[in-house]
Structure formats: structure tokens, C-alpha cells
């Protein structure tokens, strides 16, 4: 069920949807004052700027006086204000209701720069007729931990969503993939056996069967596979793992063990 940035939290609060999985940034106020809970961080993002190459700008710090297009109702508006305040620069913000309108205005030359989460910027750049005419500036001006959100009133659902993500991370860490999940279930490694439900009944505590993680990995693969298929090398976005690599490979993705 597609929702705009503006309506998403209200829809979740009202029970219209049970799980909000969008580019929603985990912030303190959203986590504490909306009656909602962010379960985990499934993507570490940060806000950045995209400009036309011919503008000759190579750093966000040179954007003083510029007009910036952005989508309203998101953390980006506040991040922008903070960034320009901290660096004592003037700017003009033009905020639009949806991402599409924002892009159209940027293309029409209404703004010098377009600001959004960097993953979204890379995705957007590909949609331009000549992607090479635009560059994403190197500065990342905010922390944007994105993840699925649920209502705080349902702890069991919260745990289920959280551990589904952890299961995918643990699977990647243990080398369990879509292809070898069945085979791995017979492994002698106790960690693998616990995760896949061959040993113990961890899934039952969150209202699922013992082989819950096995079924997740069978269907969508582990975190790495899912990442590559949806936003990484297997997709048109071709986003590098970067901060979203496993902790064992220098990234930030780290899951508590199944024990």
C-alpha cells in the first residue's frame, strides 16, 4: 500500500497499515511521541545534495545562496535548515508534496540543488535522460537510519519484525543463502542449527514455527542477497554496500545472536 511521506505515520497510527517500511528515518521524536516504534535499522543512509555538473560546484559548502528543492514532511527539511545554519550560509527552500514533483521542479531549473537521502539521489539520477549531467556532492549532512516501523501497542509484532531482519543478517553472517538453506539445516554448526530451527524452538516465542528463519531465507534470501537484488549490483541502482556491510566486513549491520 503506497503512502506519501506526509501520510505515512498517520496511516500507521490509525491502523490502516500494520508495518511501515519506507524511507522513514528513525528519530527520537518519531520513536517516542507518535505511539510508534522503530524496530531495526535495515539501511544506514545519509542526506546529500545533487546538482548539475555545469554549475561547477564540487562541495555542499559552496551552496551558499542556492535554491534547494526537497520533499516536504520529511527530516530533510530540518536537516537542510541545520546544515545551512551551522555553516552560516543562506539558501532558499522549495518544498513539494511528492518526490516526483520535486524532481520535475529541479529539472525545470527551479532549484540549483536537489536534496534527499543519498540512496534516493542515486536512484533518481538514473531516471534522468542524461545521468552524467548530474553529480551527487560528497558531503553527507545527516544520519538517516531507515527501518521498518510498527505501532508500539503490539510488542509481539514488533519482535517479529525486528527478528525477521536479524534472522536475515545472521544468515548472511553464517553463510546461509537462498540456495543452500536446506543443506545448511543439516549443518553441525550449533549457531546455524539454532537459526534454522534444527535445534531449539526459538521461533515459537515470537508466535512462529521453529523453522521461521529457514523459511525467510528460502523465500527472500539473506540480507546480502536481498540488498544486492533490490538496491545493489543486481538492481539498476547499483548502490555499494558501504556502511550497510556486515560488522565483520567493516560495516554497521550487526545482529544479536539467536540463542
Amino acid at each position: 500500500m503506497p503512502l506519501s511521506s506526509k501520510d505515512r505515520f498517520t496511516a500507521l497510527q490509525a491502523g490502516e497499515v500494520d508495518l511501515l517500511s519506507r524511507t522513514s528515518t528513525w528519530t527520537m521524536s518519531r520513536d517516542t511521541a507518535l505511539g510508534l516504534s522503530f524496530s531495526t535499522v535495515n539501511y544506514y543512509d545519509g542526506q546529500a545534495f545533487m546538482v548539475r555538473k555545469k554549475l561547477g560546484v564540487d562541495s555542499a559548502l559552496k551552496l551558499g545562496g542556492a535554491s534547494i528543492c526537497t520533499q516536504q514532511g520529511t527530516t530533510t527539511e530540518v536537516n537542510l535548515a541545520d546544515f545551512f545554519r551551522i555553516n552560516h550560509m543562506k539558501y532558499e527552500v522549495v518544498a513539494f508534496n511528492t518526490g516526483d514533483e520535486t524532481i520535475k521542479a529541479y529539472e525545470a531549473g527551479r532549484c540549483d540543488a536537489f536534496s534527499d537521502d543519498s540512496s534516493a539521489l542515486y536512484a533518481q539520477r538514473l531516471k534522468f535522460e542524461a545521468p552524467d549531467d548530474h553529480i551527487v556532492l560528497p558531503e553527507v549532512i545527516s544520519k538517516e537510519p531507515l527501518g521498518p516501523v510498527v505501532r508500539s501497542s503490539d510488542m509481539q509484532w514488533f519482535n517479529l519484525v525486528k527478528w525477521s531482519h536479524f534472522a536475515m543478517l545472521n544468515a548472511e553472517e553464517l553463510g546461509i543463502t537462498k540456495a543452500n538453506a536446506d543443506e545448511q539445516a543439516k549443518s553441525t554448526n550449533p549457531e546455524v542449527r539454532r537459526l534454522l530451527g534444527t535445534e531449539g524452538k526459538f521461533g515459537e516465542a515470537i508466535g512462529l514455527t521453529a523453522d521461521w528463519a529457514h523459511r525467510i531465507v528460502k523465500q527472500v534470501g539473506n540480507y546480502g542477497e536481498s540488498f544486492e537484488a533490490n538496491v545493489g549490483s543486481g538492481s539498476i541502482l547499483k548502490i555499494a554496500r558501504g556502511k550497510n556491510a556486515l560488522w565483520t566486513k567493516g560495516g554497521l549491520q550487526y545482529a544479536p545472536p539467536v540463542r
Partner: peptide
């Protein structure tokens, strides 16, 4: 728009 979203 913006105020609703930021205050929730």
C-alpha cells in the same frame, strides 16, 4: 504538511 509530520 510539514508541521503535522514533524509533530505527528
Amino acid at each position: 504538511g510539514t508541521v503535522l509530520n514533524q509533530t505527528g
